[in-house]
């Protein structure tokens, strides 16, 4: 029994995982979740389901182009198909780290492009349970991130990271994110409100391999306080398609190129 110290080290082994800090885990997660590839395209079908089970559908094509490294500037283009009366509406966002986004909207019925102030990242994305932040990410510097423990989602090992906002601008008090230890995709996120009560739950319901990149192709967000939930499916996903920078302009907002949005 002289080698008792071996057992102690063996017992401590899982802690090796903690070699990463909370910040590092979230940074890797952001890169894996929101920045893979140089660009990305998906046909997005969102189902907005209320407490009574009534469904509303939003269908759009989403294009994303990274302008630099992971964590850097990005451009988003969204072209709506459904609901029927908003067909041809398109929405463009220039996303900057640590600065308010620039947003433009094309309203086909009055043939007008309008800049939209992005003062509130907490507001709902097209009436869903996802906020703009949930869709395009939240600045990592806005929160303190600490690895609380290790956990599992299904059979996947995860870091459980607690993120607490530094300021008061967030719509949550803190959140716990289950980050896959190998893919670094967030598999689950529990948000708690400022009073500490469970608020919203995000789940990555299906992860698929797209051109060698693990991608969350089905996800959902449920508001536990209102019973409202949103289910999102990504169809026809593709990476590194060579989307031109010129697409992200007012001209194409009015008249998007078919090959990109169809």
């Amino acid at each position: 029994m002289k080698r008792w110290w071996i057992w102690i080290i063996a017992g401590l082994l899982p802690l090796q995982a903690f070699a990463l800090t909370g910040e590092e885990v979230m940074k890797k997660s952001q890169a894996a979740f929101l920045y893979p590839g140089t660009d990305f395209k998906a046909r997005v079908v969102m189902k907005l389901i209320n407490k009574g089970g009534q469904e509303r559908v939003r269908e759009l094509t989403m294009l994303r182009k990274n302008m630099g490294e992971a964590g850097g500037e990005q451009k988003y283009f969204m072209y709506f198909f459904r609901p029927a009366d908003v067909k041809d509406m398109s929405f463009m966002t220039y996303k900057y780290p640590a600065k308010d986004d620039d947003r433009w909207l094309f309203i086909p019925a009055i043939n007008m492009v309008k800049r939209i102030a992005a003062q509130d990242k907490r507001s709902s994305f097209v009436g869903s349970d996802f906020t703009y932040e949930d869709v395009s990410g939240r600045d990592l510097e806005d929160d303190n991130h600490v690895i609380e423990r290790e956990g599992k989602v299904g059979n996947r090992d995860c870091y459980v990271v607690k993120s607490t906002p530094k300021g008061t601008d967030a719509d949550f008090g803190y959140k716990l994110t289950w980050v896959d230890t190998s893919t670094f995709l967030p598999l689950k996120e529990e948000q708690f409100d400022k009073k500490g009560a469970p608020y919203k739950v995000f789940t990555a319901d299906e992860v698929a391999d797209v051109q060698g990149i693990p991608t969350v192709v089905k996800r959902s967000m449920k508001n536990l306080q209102t019973g409202h939930r949103t289910e999102v499916a990504y169809l026809n996903t593709g990476y590194n398609l060579g989307i031109e920078d010129s697409l992200f302009s007012e001209r194409f907002l009015r008249q998007p190129l078919r090959k990109w949005v169809e």
Partner: peptide, 24 residues
């Protein structure tokens, strides 16, 4: 009130993009 149903629909969609869900 604008002239067409599409305009109304798009206005409300626009509103729902930024307002609190409960507003609408």
């Amino acid at each position: 009130i604008p002239e067409t149903q599409d305009t109304v629909g798009q206005y409300l969609f626009l509103f729902s993009m930024s307002a609190k869900p409960s507003d609408l």
